[in-house]
Lab assay of single mutants.
Amino acid sequence: NKEHILAQKEVLTPIEYEHYVKHLFDIGEITKELYIELSS
């Protein structure tokens, strides 16, 4: 869920976080809207 993803932002580097969010989007775990929101 969104809270879990945002928690990852605390422990990952910005680049790792971007890759993580992109991966979730690629596998269909999150919607495009959520992907855009989380990567901003």
Rank of each mutant, 00 (worst) to 15 (best):
K22W: 15
A7L: 07
I30D: 00
E18Y: 15
N1S: 15
K2L: 12
V21Q: 00
E37Q: 14
K9P: 01
V21A: 02
E3H: 14
E16Q: 12
F25V: 02
V11G: 08
K9M: 07
S40I: 13
T13Y: 04
V21R: 01
T13L: 09
L38C: 02
A7N: 08
T31L: 05
I36F: 07
I30A: 01
E3F: 12
T31Y: 04
L12Y: 06
K9L: 09
Y17G: 00
K32L: 14
E10V: 08
F25Q: 03
L12N: 02
T31K: 04
I27Q: 15
S39M: 10
E18S: 13
G28E: 03
L34K: 04
I27F: 06
L24F: 03
S39E: 06
E18F: 12
L38K: 00
V21N: 00
S39L: 15
E16T: 04
S39F: 11
K32W: 14
L38G: 00
Y20H: 03
L12D: 01
I5E: 02
K2Q: 10
L12H: 03
H4A: 09
E16F: 03
V11A: 14
I27L: 13
L34Q: 09
E33V: 07
V21P: 00
K32G: 10
L6D: 03
T13D: 12
Q8D: 02
V11E: 09
I5K: 01
K9V: 05
A7F: 05
A7W: 05
E18V: 12
I15G: 13
L6S: 05
V21K: 02
E18G: 08
T13W: 05
H4L: 12
I36R: 09
Q8Y: 07
L12W: 03
L24C: 02
K2T: 09
G28I: 01
V21H: 00
E37W: 12
I5Q: 02
K9R: 11
E3L: 08
E37F: 12
H19Q: 15
Y35L: 08
E33G: 08
Q8L: 10
Y20D: 00
D26M: 12
S40Q: 08
H23F: 13
L24I: 04
L38Y: 06
K22M: 11
L12E: 01
E18K: 14
P14H: 07
F25L: 11
L24R: 03
H23I: 03
E16Y: 03
L38A: 03
Y35A: 04
L6I: 06
K22L: 11
E3V: 10
I5A: 04
E37G: 03
T31H: 05
D26V: 12
V21F: 03
P14L: 15
K9H: 05
K2A: 08
Y17A: 01
E3A: 15
E3R: 06
E18A: 14
I5W: 08
V11I: 14
K9E: 03
G28T: 01
H19W: 12
F25D: 00
T13N: 06
I27T: 14
H23G: 04
H19N: 15
L38P: 00
E16P: 02
E18H: 13
L34N: 04
L34Y: 06
Y20S: 01
T13R: 05
K9W: 06
E18W: 15
I27N: 14
L24D: 00
K22G: 06
T13F: 05
E3P: 07
A7S: 07
Y17E: 00
S39R: 12
E29L: 14
D26F: 07
H19K: 14
E29F: 13
E33H: 05
V21Y: 03
Y17P: 00
I30H: 00
Y35V: 02
E33F: 07
K22Y: 14
V21T: 04
V11F: 14
E16W: 03
H19F: 14
A7R: 09
L34M: 11
K9C: 04
G28Q: 05
K32P: 10
K2D: 04
N1P: 06
H19R: 14
K32Q: 09
E18Q: 08
D26I: 13
T31G: 12
E10I: 08
K32E: 11
G28N: 07
L6P: 02
T31M: 05
A7G: 11
K9N: 03
E16L: 06
E33M: 08
E37S: 09
F25R: 03
Y20F: 08
P14N: 13
T13M: 05
K22D: 07
F25S: 02
K9T: 04
E3I: 12
A7V: 06
H4R: 08
N1L: 10
I5N: 01
E10P: 07
L24Q: 04
Y35E: 02
A7H: 06
K22H: 10
G28Y: 04
I5G: 01
L38R: 00
I36G: 11
D26L: 12
A7T: 07
L38S: 01
Y35W: 14
G28A: 03
L12A: 01
G28K: 03
H19M: 09
E33S: 09
E33N: 10
Y20I: 03
I15Q: 09
E3Y: 09
P14W: 09
L38W: 03
I36S: 11
E33Q: 07
Y20T: 02
I15R: 09
I15H: 14
Y35D: 00
V11L: 06
L6G: 04
F25W: 12
Q8T: 08
E37I: 07
I36W: 06
E10W: 08
Y35P: 00
I30V: 05
E16N: 06
I30W: 01
I5M: 05
V11Y: 13
H23K: 11
